[in-house]
């Protein structure tokens, strides 16, 4: 579904990504972790071309991002993305947040879009908040709306960029719960997160990044099973994030 091929990226002279390659198959849940500044957020933003890269290619559902002929907005419409800081549109109601792209990008009718939006709102447990504005919701609620907004576009894959990092601890759970349900429903997901509990529960594979490189790329069982087989950097990281 996603095929990342030798992607490198520079900010001026500074190289943020070095020769990153990996695959995400249909229905697979891949967790990307690593210390801050390791390039994991940058990598996931390359997947829907929000961040340009200078070398390599990423192919999403058969469409090459490096190909200059690719219609990037069209590609992005099929890739859902959830951000660390939610990024709901504050001037629009929750319902409008859920329908605006369906109507303006996919060309759906208002009624159909609203219907779909409300169903998804139901699915994330926020049907009764439809008429409110983002500012009236808690962080956890906003993030659940953001997930519903992405799902409303019927994406072939969902990208999560640290979806719980900006949340109060007691709200992390409600967002993870939605993500777990989504994973169980068979959604293809690539998640940058430090929630190792989530990784253990639903990930098929774990990618560990450090200094712009993919250091580890293995199954969940390998990653959490035999620590002695892990790289020294990954061991140190796991030592810090895993509960003792």
């Amino acid at each position: 579904m996603i095929s990342i091929k030798s992607v490198s990226k520079w900010y001026g002279d500074f190289q943020v990504l070095t020769d990153c390659s990996t695959e995400v198959d249909k229905g697979e849940v891949v967790v990307v972790c690593g210390p801050s500044g390791s390039g994991k957020s940058t990598l996931i933003k390359c997947v829907n071309a929000l961040e340009p890269f200078q070398k390599g290619d990423i192919v999403v559902d058969g469409t090459s991002i490096a190909d200059p002929k690719t219609d990037l907005p069209k590609l992005r419409a099929r890739v859902g993305m959830v951000f660390q800081s939610f990024e709901l549109f504050p001037h629009l109601s929750i319902t409008e947040n859920l329908t605006i792209a369906q109507i303006k990008v996919l060309g759906r009718g208002k009624e159909e879009a609203t219907d779909k939006g409300l169903k998804l709102l139901e699915r994330v447990g926020l049907r009764d908040q439809a008429l409110k504005y983002p500012g009236q919701l808690s962080g956890g609620q906003q993030q659940r709306v953001a997930i519903a907004r992405a799902l409303a576009m019927d994406p072939v894959v969902m990208l999560f960029d640290e979806p719980t990092s900006a949340l109060d601890p007691e709200m992390v759970h409600e967002v993870l719960e939605v993500m777990v349900k989504l994973a169980h429903a068979g959604m293809t997901m690539m998640c940058v997160t430090h929630e190792m509990g989530f990784a253990r529960q639903v990930a098929n594979r774990v990618i560990f990044m450090d200094q712009g490189r993919i250091v580890e790329d293995c199954t969940k069982d390998e990653f959490f099973g035999d620590l002695s087989a892990r790289s020294e950097r990954a061991r140190r990281f796991l030592d810090l994030v895993l509960p003792h």
């Binding site: 933003k45 829907n48 929000l50 907005p73 069209k74 590609l75 992005r76 419409a77 099929r78 890739v79 859902g80 993305m81 951000f83 800081s85 990024e87 709901l88 549109f89 504050p90 001037h91 605006i100 792209a101 303006k104 990008v105 996919l106 907004r149 992405a150 576009m153």
Partner: peptide, 27 residues
């Protein structure tokens, strides 16, 4: 307007013009 708003609008498949007209300029 925070940079992330543009990113979120783009991530939903909006063109540059739509991002500006529907998300950035109204705010």
């Amino acid at each position: 307007i925070p940079k992330g708003q543009m990113g979120a609008a783009q991530a939903l498949g909006m063109s540059y013009g739509q991002c500006m007209r529907l998300v950035i300029l109204p705010q």
